[in-house]
């Protein structure tokens, strides 16, 4: 299983997935032309990772800003993780937000209401 490492840009999030650390991280801003295509490699990675027998994964989201198309793509990612959690995998999600950014905190809260996978909504350190 390979490591996925996509550098962040002004309009696209950094995506990091490490099978050894059992860790996925998404960070930065996201308003690409097509958010579903942009996040597709990470969706594929997660599916393959569990298909190859992995039992555990931590997912960290450290988003500064994203547009509505990306909000749907990110929510689909959490839904995917929720599915593996329902299939008895040890999955947890941490959603970080800037303490000044109520909107970003609300997104994390709405995920924890909508899904069963444990989601910790955490303020970023200054």
């Amino acid at each position: 299983m390979n490591t996925l490492n996509i550098e962040k840009t002004f309009e696209t999030a950094g995506v990091f997935a490490d099978p050894t650390a059992a860790l996925v991280r998404v960070e930065g801003s996201s308003f690409p032309e097509n958010a579903f295509i942009y996040f597709a490699p990470l969706v594929d990675w997660i599916e393959q990772y569990f298909a190859q027998g992995a039992t555990e994964l931590s997912a960290e989201f450290r988003m500064t800003y994203f547009n509505t198309a990306s909000s749907k793509a990110l929510r689909n990612l959490v839904k995917l993780l929720d599915g593996f959690y329902a299939a008895e995998k040890r999955v947890r999600v941490t959603w970080y937000y800037d303490p000044d950014d109520e909107d970003m905190q609300d997104v994390g809260k709405s995920y924890s209401l909508a899904f069963d996978v444990p989601i910790s909504v955490q303020p970023l350190d200054e």
Binding site: F10, E11, T64, Y65, N67, D98, D101, E102, D103
Partner: peptide, 27 residues
Amino acid sequence: VVDLGGLLQKRLGFDAKVRKMFSIFVE
């Protein structure tokens, strides 16, 4: 869209208030 967004951030920074405005701008 990306370049206008960059211009906007250069002019106003990117604190939480600007991000709220920026998100409306991008939509």
